[in-house]
Computed example of a mutant assay.
Amino acid sequence: MKKLNRYISFLTILFLFVLMLPLHSSAQYMQISVSGTGEVEAEADLLLFNVTITQFHGSPKTAFDRHKEQESFLTRLLISENIAEENIYTNPVNISPMRRQQDGSGYETRQNVTIRIDDVAQFEAMQITLIENGFVNFSGNFTSSMQKEAADEALALAVEDAKMKAEILAKASGKEIIDIITIEYGTRSEVSPRSATAMYVMEAADSSLLQFRQTITVRERVNVVFTAN
């Protein structure tokens, strides 16, 4: 009987000890949750030329036929400019009923085409040709062939930024960083253009703002949870 009582007492003490472990652990360690940001500038050595082909007419057939005429012209222009097929991105023609305040009811076609080029002079000349042939909806944006490498570097900097912030918070609390519990990361990079000065990135016409060196800023963000004691 005494042995049984001692055994029960031992189990009770062991059970209480196990219950107290999380309390002891939570009293010893703290969690620090911070966000980190990393930014890297990459040389903007490419242009994305966005062209929207659109036609409006009361007859759907007329709107579509006129659209195909512009599509054929753009195709011939891209071939004559030696734009590689892998640098042309397009989607099918969309046609839908539309009511315009000035033109009334009719049908509108729409097709988006994106062209990747690496020559500013070619970009400027193509714009003039398109305007002369009835195109009115297009734009250009800088991008970089090194965007993926810049994003990887920015991501590493974002983690370092989070760690630095956590160490400051831990030190201010009289603690030290022990380990990382979790890292939350969205897969979408933020990219924004930025213009620097005094250097050429591509051949451009004299007295053009595009003669100045162009860069894009690639930005990554992470949320990191650290433990400290």
Rank of each mutant, 00 (worst) to 15 (best):
A63P: 06
F138R: 02
D118T: 10
R76C: 04
R194C: 06
I53K: 01
D65P: 02
G58L: 06
M202I: 10
K165S: 10
I216L: 05
T75I: 07
S26C: 06
K3G: 06
K68V: 14
I131F: 09
N223P: 00
F49K: 01
I181G: 00
R99N: 14
S105A: 15
S145D: 03
N223L: 10
L4R: 11
V222W: 02
P193S: 09
T114C: 07
Q211I: 13
S96V: 12
I13M: 10
L11E: 00
L130V: 07
T114G: 09
K148F: 10
N87H: 08
Y29D: 09
K61A: 14
E176P: 02
V120K: 06
G174F: 04
Q214H: 11
V222A: 03
A150V: 07
A205T: 12
V18H: 00
K68E: 13
A63S: 13
L21V: 15
N141D: 13
E149V: 11
S96T: 12
G174P: 08
V191G: 05
D65N: 14
L19P: 04
A162K: 03
D161H: 08
N82P: 02
V201W: 02
N112F: 05
K163F: 06
I183L: 11
S195R: 13
S105T: 13
A63M: 07
